[in-house]
Design a protein around this nucleic acid. Structure first.
Length: 503
RNA sequence: GCCCCCAUCGUCUAGUGGCCUAGGACAUCACCCUUUCAAGGUGGAGAUCGCGGGUUCGAAUCCCGCUGGGGGCACCA
């Protein structure tokens, strides 16, 4: 299969049945990348023909999630375009699908089926009871003359319109990603799928195809779960005499344990959740591009422009990708480290506010204080949501016996008494300092090590726990500077007092 | 059950007949740096290229079978 010539028209067509799944973003991204790389349009279309599963607000979540990762569209529900509307229920109301189904009926390629859902369920049950595992429905009405179908319909009996699939022969199609041989399906494996529900609403198999044709879609990129139903689609294209689009079925994204696809029920995959946890949109963009596609096997960190320039359909993998949260985290850390202090502060601010550490309307002092602390956590952050926890002791009291265990103050190979000596000496030395800056603090504390004949490890460790309540924290001198003189000294005193209680 | 798709280190992936004694990344281990944790640097371990047959002078790369995994079989998309 050769490369793409000419402009492409591709689309992402989600159904508003819930918040956007991260795998859906990957599908959207590949389509978007295709349009931007080869030149052409990326279209957003909402497929809301399932009234039962419709979730109010879902369409907005989808748009917002796509925008968040930086995917924009050239035509869509909100901005319109030459082939609108871009919402299927609206297209249905305009009667867009009617003439096409009528055409199929007239040609005898589809028929009205009066079998009800209940009857169908009974037939399936009966088939199963008879040991027939594969039940393939073909309605008895498929051989009725159209006039008879219309006659019965006129009596008010509800009906669906089904595709009259050929009983013999085979249906074949090519998939760009699974190049080489054609995918061949014997027609006896098909069944007469519903095209129009008894409510009159078209089903995906029919609606998407009419829309793709009218919208002049050139490449259909969708998840590989659509491969088995593609024969129905090509049957329809051929029936209508419409040119088939190029099919490119994207590899599935499997769960971390490899057992099945990522699923909304079992996995935390709603796109807004990644935002909530503090993933940067540039991370998601880059990581998702690598789910089923690769550039050269070596380069992984790429900007949007680089990705657009390098993305080609040929390099999409046919084999499934597997979701790797660890790698995602790592990549987010890389992108966080690329930010400037101010940029990171801006991104971290909402998390600090949500944690209640900074007011809803951040004051000038709160903002500059945050800016001063950001360098301390910058290279330690992998998810923005970790920031409040890492910065907690700069904002909240540190109380021995309450926010930490006083026993943690005691360094290895030391006892409480020795620790008291160390901390008293530290308090004494530090209280002499008027220039409360990291260099001055370092000079003083290193001199104290000499004086006390102790290594920095134990002394600094004890001070760290005393002022932060943690054994793991940013570098000590910066931390002390950030906490400030008065608070640092009083926390040392509290620690000494707590240790004295232990004697 | 039937049909379809897929198959390289634990995971993602490079590889399109000789450059492969199989490269990179995550994770993992060790060391360096060092006040803890990170970050960074160096190095290690980790893949009989799922198995079995072919084709070929030569196969991870082509063909067949098997096995394994995934997906689909709705008046859902």
């Amino acid at each position: 299969m050769s490369a793409i010539e000419g402009p492409v028209r591709v689309r992402f067509a989600p159904s508003p049945t819930g918040s956007l799944h991260i795998g859906g973003v990957r599908t959207a991204l590949f389509n978007w990348l295709c349009a931007r790389h080869y030149g052409g349009q990326f279209i957003l279309r909402i497929e809301d023909t399932d009234e039962k599963r419709f979730v109010p607000g879902a369409a907005d979540d989808i748009s917002a999630s796509l925008r968040w990762v930086g995917i924009d569209w050239d035509e869509g529900p909100d901005i319109g375009g030459p082939y609108g509307p871009y919402v299927q229920s609206q297209r249905f109301e305009q009667g867009i699908y009617q003439p096409f189904i009528e055409q199929l009926l007239e040609a005898g390629l589809a028929y009205m089926s009066f079998t009800t859902e209940e009857e169908l369920a009974q037939m399936r049950a009966a088939a199963e009871a008879a040991g027939i595992k594969a039940f393939r429905f073909r309605g008895p009405e498929r051989d009725w003359p159209l006039a008879k179908q219309r006659e019965v319909a006129a009596t008010g009996k509800p009906y669906t319109i089904r595709l009259k699939t050929p009983l013999e022969g085979e249906t074949r199609f090519r998939d760009l990603i699974r190049g080489g041989d054609e995918i061949v399906v014997h027609n006896d494996q098909l069944q007469d799928i519903v095209l129009i529900k008894s409510t009159g609403m078209p089903v995906y198999h029919f609606a998407h195809l009419v829309d793709d044709h009218l919208m002049k879609i050139t490449h259909v990129m969708r998840g590989e779960e659509w491969v088995p139903s593609t024969p129905y689609h090509v049957l329809l294209y051929d029936f209508f005499g419409w040119p088939r689009p190029v099919f490119a079925h994207l590899p599935a994204i499997l769960r971390q344990d490899g057992r099945g696809k990522l699923s909304k029920r079992k996995d935390d995959v709603a796109t807004y959740r990644f935002r909530e946890r503090g993933y940067l949109p540039e991370t998601i963009f880059n990581y998702l591009a690598l789910q089923g596609w690769s550039y050269d096997g070596v380069t992984e960190i790429m900007t949007r422009d680089e990705l657009i320039a390098r993305f080609t359909l040929e390099r999409i993998q046919p084999s499934p990708a597997r979701w790797n949260p660890e790698k995602l985290r790592d990549m987010n850390g890389i992108y966080i480290r690329k930010l400037t202090t101010e940029q990171l502060a801006e991104r971290v601010l909402p998390f600090m506010q949500r944690a209640g550490l900074i007011g809803e309307l951040a004051s000038e002092e709160e903002w500059s204080y945050l800016i001063s602390l950001i360098p301390l956590i910058h290279e330690r952050l992998e998810e923005l949501q970790e920031a409040p926890e890492l910065l907690m002791f700069f904002y909240r009291d540190v109380i021995p016996g309450e926010t930490y265990n006083p026993a943690d103050l005691i360094p290895k190979k030391h006892d409480a008494g020795q620790t008291i000596t160390l901390l008293r000496a530290a308090h004494e030395a530090l209280s002499q300092i008027t220039d409360w800056t990291p260099p001055a603090l370092e000079t003083t504390l290193r001199a104290l090590c000499e004086q006390l004949q102790v290594k920095p490890g134990p002394l600094f460790g004890a001070i760290r726990v005393a002022v932060t309540g943690r054994s793991v924290a940013p570098p000590l001198f910066d931390t002390l500077a950030g906490i400030g003189r008065e608070r640092s000294l009083s926390r040392l005193n509290a620690a000494i007092a707590a240790l004295e209680q232990m004697l």
